[in-house]
């Protein structure tokens, strides 16, 4: 794993929904080596810790990466104040991304701000990928919890239907822990390989401080893994989901 720290110019910024931003950063060396599902540790001026944000797209030719994030608190609010032309301080690319294998039939399941990180996965598989996007309430989506758009219900309902109807090789999921847990259960029920991208509070982001622990199991032995280096993407079978 290789990563860099630096201050890089923001070359594009868009507000894509209320409190949701899409920024493109010019950092050719990072763009060249980023894989789908990896993340960046983003400095928020005036805050002690960096904020982990997924890299939802990397373009090695243009030398850019894209971060899409939601303002959830004071740190992300501060980051959202950066504009085109400003420099953003990041460490990237970090963590282990999704494993992609040509020729598979896959389904990507995103919840809220967990959707953008799946973009690159869907792009890789092209027409062999089905995307199920869940938002609490939004515009261009398949299902929302409150029924304001598309299908009213949780993403697991269309997912189960799909798994029953179509042979699926891999499920890729990113979103809130509760959603991931339910998807992991479906994956097990239908015996489909499933990769989930987890969130955990972080400090170093590179595997040195051990604060980002997550319970995992391998060969029926439970142990602590670290989301920043062993993840954020894990095989759902290896994750021990808390209640």
């Amino acid at each position: 794993m290789s990563y860099k720290q630096g201050k890089f110019p923001i070359v594009e910024k868009r507000a894509i929904a209320k409190g949701m931003f899409d920024i493109t950063i010019c950092c050719p060396e990072i763009a060249k080596i980023t894989q789908a599902g990896q993340f960046a540790q983003v400095a928020a001026k005036g805050f002690f810790l960096r904020r982990p944000i997924s890299i939802c797209q990397s373009d090695p030719e243009r030398g850019t990466i894209r971060l899409v994030f939601e303002v959830r608190g004071n740190g992300t609010e501060k980051i959202s104040g950066l504009n085109k032309g400003d420099c953003i301080d990041i460490i990237a690319p970090l963590g282990k991304g999704f494993t992609l294998k040509r020729g598979k039939r896959v389904v990507c399941v995103g919840g809220g701000i967990g959707n953008p990180p799946l973009l690159e996965v869907a792009r890789f598989y092209g027409c062999k990928a089905t995307m199920i996007s869940g938002f609490r309430s939004a515009e261009v989506v398949l299902c929302t919890d409150d029924g304001s758009a598309g299908f009213h219900g949780f993403v697991t309902q269309p997912l189960e239907k799909l798994l029953q109807e179509k042979k699926t090789d891999v499920i890729y999921a990113c979103g809130p822990m509760g959603m991931l847990k339910n998807i992991a259960m479906l994956a097990e029920k239908y015996n489909v390989k499933c990769e989930v991208s987890l969130e955990q509070r972080m400090a170093c982001g590179i595997g040195a401080c051990l604060v980002c622990a997550c319970r995992t199991v391998k060969d029926s032995k439970e142990f602590m893994s670290h989301v920043c280096t062993d993840g954020p993407v894990f095989d759902s079978k290896e994750v021990v989901f808390d209640d």
Partner: peptide, 17 residues
């Protein structure tokens, strides 16, 4: 194995672990 997560909380000019 250490303690269960979350193991970090940000504070003004610092952090708890």
């Amino acid at each position: 194995q250490g303690n269960p997560a979350p193991r970090v909380a940000e504070t003004p000019s610092g952090m708890l672990n």
